[in-house]
Design a protein around this nucleic acid. Structure first.
Lengths: 290, 290
DNA sequence: AGGTGACTGTGAAATTATTTTCATAATTTA
DNA sequence: TAAATTATGAAAATAATTTCACAGTCACCT
């Protein structure tokens, strides 16, 4: 084997820059179900990747194979070798790094957090929270702490597109009580508070509650004291091999909620998004392609 | 699926007694390099097993497949499922919700994103990026786009504690060119740019590069055009069942990098954190417990 | 704005490979 | 020895691959 020491997967990644748009699309599709998708018929692969048959043929040649069957036969050889090799144990995420590598340890921890968080979550409560957030007749307040205000803003930026009638409370400023002056019965306050829990957030929650608002809380497994006032609490596991906590699981829940709320409001949202697209096009803020 | 829960390998072993001599010989040969040998052409398999072509055809039919290609396609399907980590094919994450519940579908997608991202990442490059970010003699610029600036800020907030000499570039403002006035050779620019890619970020990257800064890019699987200027690109899978993209995997990488950089700088960081703790205590911003 | 060139998809034809199915002879097994 | 199983070789049928020409699209450049 002259250069067979690197897998076809590696070769594809290395050549990613030399590929054209359609070829890259194909390449990513191959890597998505590697190596299974490359072992089927060429036509099936082309369909999977949403590219044309000639594109597949062209790319295979660019990779240096005489023909598609040639490419497949190397793939099979690779699979043979991998299955044979006992080192190919699959409990690693970044396979080219040792299992003690931080990438693997950290990912292990995050997956574990996700698993634990999801088994402990109450789907009915989650759905209820989504329902409340989707209700456009209620004003939506979003607030976070020193670190979590970034999550709050992430949530806010999406909600802003999906629905009107919302406010991002800048809790770091001393002006947050002013926001609450407008809060009325039935309004929704989404609060992010993980350790270390912040006093002003607690105060805010208390006041909001006393004004009759519904509170939805994103917190950690030990639960912020805010949860005493919250109508719905969603606790996420946050422990990782780091001096810091992980927001990855919280992010997952936030994004799921965004998607859910979007679905609930789809009819209204559609128009808002289209309008937004037009505006973005006009401002030429975004690139069209490549 | 009625009996698809058992693998083809299982089915073959179970029927081993019903097979004739030549068929058994073939069966064992298939199991020898399972599943690679079954994915090649029928003729090759017959040769490998030293049986005739019709024998292969007969056995495949005995196993209950309509044709040899049918058999292969099931083998591929099996391989697909197997490649996903055992943990990734977890049936349900939120066990009290049906598997079609968004919580389960979304989590599935995110786990898959993590798996794919990690297998395609280059640990050496990642480590190199961490090394650069940890180097306190280089000024660290952090910049994100319309949505991703929240990730940028999350990264910034942690880096702020870990090391001095850094700037969060507010790319939304029109003042970002001013930040770059201070950029000099050897400085680090960490850029977040996922679709839709933003023109001003690209411009910024180009200028930063021309001033001799090192660029580290967090992007998606399709890669922002910034990657042409970047010294190190980290691409994350971001597809989820939503109208929006997922930043959960990106978050995972960011946090891993934070942890890694913190480890590299531990001696210096320790003091900074302690100082910070004292300051927080004094401002009574955080609650001590509960 | 308009032209240029690279890239892609389409459809189809030619080619090649693969599978299926026979009949028959050889071999094994009971 | 008879019956069942196999291999052989080959033909027919099917499927897959390769290769075109051409037209449409998109990015890029002037």
């Amino acid at each position: 084997m002259t250069e067979a020491s690197q897998t076809i997967s590696d070769q594809i990644q290395k050549k990613l820059d030399d590929f054209t748009r359609a070829e890259r699309q194909l390449a990513l599709s191959i890597l998505e179900n590697y190596p299974a998708s490359g072992l089927g018929p060429l036509t099936a692969l082309a369909n999977d990747a949403n590219v044309s048959v000639p594109t597949v043929a062209r790319m295979v040649q660019k990779l240096g194979f005489k023909s598609y069957p040639d490419f497949q036969s190397e793939l099979r050889e690779e699979l043979r070798a991998k299955v044979k090799n006992p080192i190919a144990k699959h409990d690693m995420w970044a396979e080219t790094a040792p299992s003690e590598h931080l990438l693997n340890r950290f990912t292990d921890a995050v997956i574990d957090n996700i698993r634990l968080t999801l088994t402990q979550i109450n789907p009915a409560e989650f759905d209820a929270a989504c329902g409340l957030v989707a209700d456009q007749s209620r004003h939506l307040f979003i607030v976070g702490g020193r670190i979590t205000h970034t999550l709050a803003e992430y949530f806010y930026l999406h909600m802003q597109v999906i629905r009107p009638n919302l406010t991002h409370v800048q809790s770091t400023s001393s002006t947050w009580p002013h926001y609450l002056l407008n809060a009325k019965k039935g309004d929704i306050v989404v609060i992010f508070d993980v350790r270390r829990y912040e006093n002003n957030i607690l105060k805010l929650a208390e006041i909001a509650r006393s004004r009759g608002a519904k509170l939805i809380l994103f917190t950690d497994q030990w639960r912020s004291p805010v949860h005493h006032f919250a109508d719905i609490s969603l606790s996420c596991r946050i422990m990782v091999p780091s001096a810091w906590d992980s927001a990855a699981t919280t992010m997952l829940l936030i994004e799921t909620m965004i998607s859910s709320v979007q679905n609930l409001n789809w009819d209204d949202t559609k128009d808002r998004i289209e309008t937004l697209e037009v505006m973005f096009d006009q401002t030429r803020l975004f690139r069209k392609f490549t």
